[in-house]
Nucleic acid binder design. Structure first.
Lengths: 218, 218
DNA sequence: GTCTATATGCCGATAGAC
DNA sequence: GTCTATCGGCATATAGAC
């Protein structure tokens, strides 16, 4: 009853921030530009977000689960083997990176921009997302009965962000293939060592956010 | 005859830029701060560098070879096997990252900050350095007679930047161990497939720059 | 070569009207 | 809830003296 189309305005502000922050960098974009892109004035932006840092926080938070869900939902067949799932993760990276507007991983870039600001919301948001992503990888591998699932998940996480970084730097998507091949070699090595267990599977949850450019993240 | 202590002033400006850009980010630091840290006025900075972009370019260029030489010079014994060399690369990453002022890789962070600016000197400098680093890895592996040296070098490069990124995000140096272990597993896999060749070795060149904080890069 | 002083504009953030 | 108008500060870059 208190808000007219307040949530809609806020949504538009977030969408504008998302587009501009990802496209040009967080520090490179002023609050003026975000407000203008959302079709409101700066004062309205500051009504919805207490500061630019709060806007940054909301921007990264809005990307966290949708990005995860994008990868969670990769495989329609819940019985697909781990090797296939891992392969498709890196195939998705490669496809995303082919989009002309792709600019790497917003979490990594945010953490890089604010590397010098301890406790900054951008660093907290980035760390939370990456931890979630690594945790999802670990669960996936555990469900497949891979031995040392935590170790392998961490190594795949490293390959993942490493590939994204190299692709961004060289604008060469073939790094995704190299990383995917490495991940499969590591998976094979771990599977030889590990003890096979009963397999379980999980269902993905639907994302709670509005339409997003799904190619965008990593 | 034309310059009094011009080269010294320029050196101080570069040293100040290096410290500030790495510590707080390139866009986060203004030319005022760089000039002040170097003990000169802005006008003097603009006498030595045509623009901030030129200063950024010189900053990254000044880190390129010294960083490479730091890794080149890792192993005193030229007869050390590849596994030992690879292991020490990631051990160096871990040690560097333990320094309280460590902030990840300046090339990756520069590329991340200017991901939206096509053709920016920061992106060019980052790409050149990473290509050189990957090339050095390839030469190192070729000299050891590793089969598919180019492929493995690329995978180790991915693990390298991936680990640095994760360490920066989580402030957890153990990612270097995970990456090092993965690199050794991949090396072993490649060595089983590859055909052993006669070994050659190379000597490192001395760096041409002044004293630098060697822990700083990656 | 380095200085003082300044041009010009955008930065994040706020006051107060409606 | 959104507006107009504005604050003080800092951004990159430059003019001209010495």
């Amino acid at each position: 009853m208190v808000a007219r189309d307040s949530t809609e305005t806020r949504r538009r502000l977030l969408a504008a921030a998302d587009k501009l922050f990802y496209g040009e960098g967080i520090r490179a974009v002023g609050v003026d530009a975000v407000a203008a892109a959302a079709g409101v004035t700066k004062r309205t932006l500051y009504y919805h977000f207490a500061s630019k840092d709060h806007l940054i926080e909301a921007y990264l938070d809005g990307r966290d689960l949708p990005t995860l869900e994008r990868y969670r939902g990769l495989i329609a067949d819940p019985a697909a083997p781990a090797a296939q799932r891992i392969g498709q993760i890196f195939a998705l990276v490669e496809n995303n990176a082919r989009h002309p507007d792709w600019r790497g991983c917003n979490f990594v870039r945010a953490a890089a921009e604010f590397a010098g600001s301890v406790g900054h919301p951008a660093r907290i948001g980035a760390a939370r997302h990456k931890k979630r992503f690594e945790g999802w990888l670990r669960e996936l591998l555990e469900a497949e009965g891979v031995g040392d699932a935590a170790d392998l998940a961490r190594q795949i996480m490293i390959l993942f962000d490493g590939a994204v970084t190299q692709i961004l730097i060289h604008r060469d998507t073939s790094y995704a293939k190299a990383a995917g091949a490495a991940a499969l070699m590591l998976l094979r090595a771990h599977q030889t060592e590990g003890v096979p267990q009963a397999r379980t599977s999980r269902r993905s949850r639907a994302t709670r956010t509005v339409r997003q450019e799904l190619w965008r993240n990593v």
